[in-house]
Simulated assay, not measured.
Amino acid sequence: MKRRSLLRTATTLTAAGLAAGAPAQSTAAPRQRDDDAASLRVHVVLFDGVEELDLAAPYEVLAASDHFTDRTVDVRYVALDGPRTVTAAFGTRLRADRAWAPEQADVLVVPGGGYARRDQPGVWAEIQRGALPRALARAPRPGLTISALCTGVMLLSAAGLTHGRPCTTHHRAKADLERQGGVLKNARVVDDGDLVTAGGVTSGLDLALWLARRELGVDAALGLESMLEYEARGTVWTARRNNG
């Protein structure tokens, strides 16, 4: 049995038992997926030098969210240069089996990594190469949420997507983000509608939990927090909340 399936089953049974005042081993009817419900398609962008934690945390959380919703959640790794193997910051080799296709996604997640290592692969190298920022600049369309975490936000900045908009990034890149026109918010996650950003290496957990809550509902986020034994950290700044 897959680890997430086992954890989700245990979490569900425990919650059902507590709610009913019954032992945790009490059986509960399995969730029936609504085949008519629209799927949530998430593309996590890979590039050489990407930080392992930046890419793994959103993938894990959003893939696991499939267990706590009637909607189908499809999470994929994609690379701009088509299906290929990517070498991450600490040497992990990952296969992006899907080509770049933001028109087929509902949520695009851009991790960070390598912004400070300017002589090595990573965000800075991708900015200098230019291809990924240009592709990101062309990606926006109705129905697509573009999100990024840590220094991945600087790829969005290079694409012009954060200019004049509330956003955040890793603390060492905040001054650069602001100089490039971003409206810096000192929040863990900043939600400006179709642009969602998060700051810090571990913020992929909080970004993904917020996206799960926003797209799938509070119960899905609560289920994920229980399964992961992690509670979302920090305050989420949202345009809706701050602008009435």
Rank of each mutant, 00 (worst) to 15 (best):
V110N: 01
S157C: 13
E178V: 14
D176T: 14
L108D: 01
P83N: 06
R93V: 15
H163D: 14
T72D: 14
A88M: 13
K185L: 14
W100R: 00
R93P: 02
W100M: 01
D97M: 02
G130Q: 11
R138C: 00
L156V: 09
R141L: 08
R93L: 12
V73D: 02
H163L: 11
A116E: 15
D106P: 05
W124R: 01
C150L: 12
V109C: 05
G164V: 10
G122T: 03
T168Y: 10
H170P: 06
G82S: 04
L80V: 07
A96N: 02
Y77Q: 00
L80Y: 06
G130D: 12
A131G: 00
L94S: 02
R188Q: 15
R93A: 15
D97T: 07
R141N: 02
P121N: 09
A131M: 04
L80T: 05
V107Q: 02
G181P: 09
W124P: 00
R95H: 07
V123I: 09
Y77G: 00
Q180I: 09
A99Y: 02
L149M: 13
A158P: 07
T169N: 04
P121Q: 07
M154K: 02
R84E: 11
H163M: 12
A173P: 07
G143N: 07
A159T: 09
M154P: 02
T169V: 12
R179I: 12
E103G: 10
V73Y: 03
D119G: 05
T151Q: 05
K174V: 14
R84C: 10
C150V: 10
L80W: 08
L184V: 13
L177N: 01
F90V: 14
D81P: 05
D74P: 06
L80M: 08
I146K: 00
Q128A: 14
T85V: 15
T145Y: 07
D97N: 01
L80C: 03
K174N: 06
A135S: 01
L155A: 03
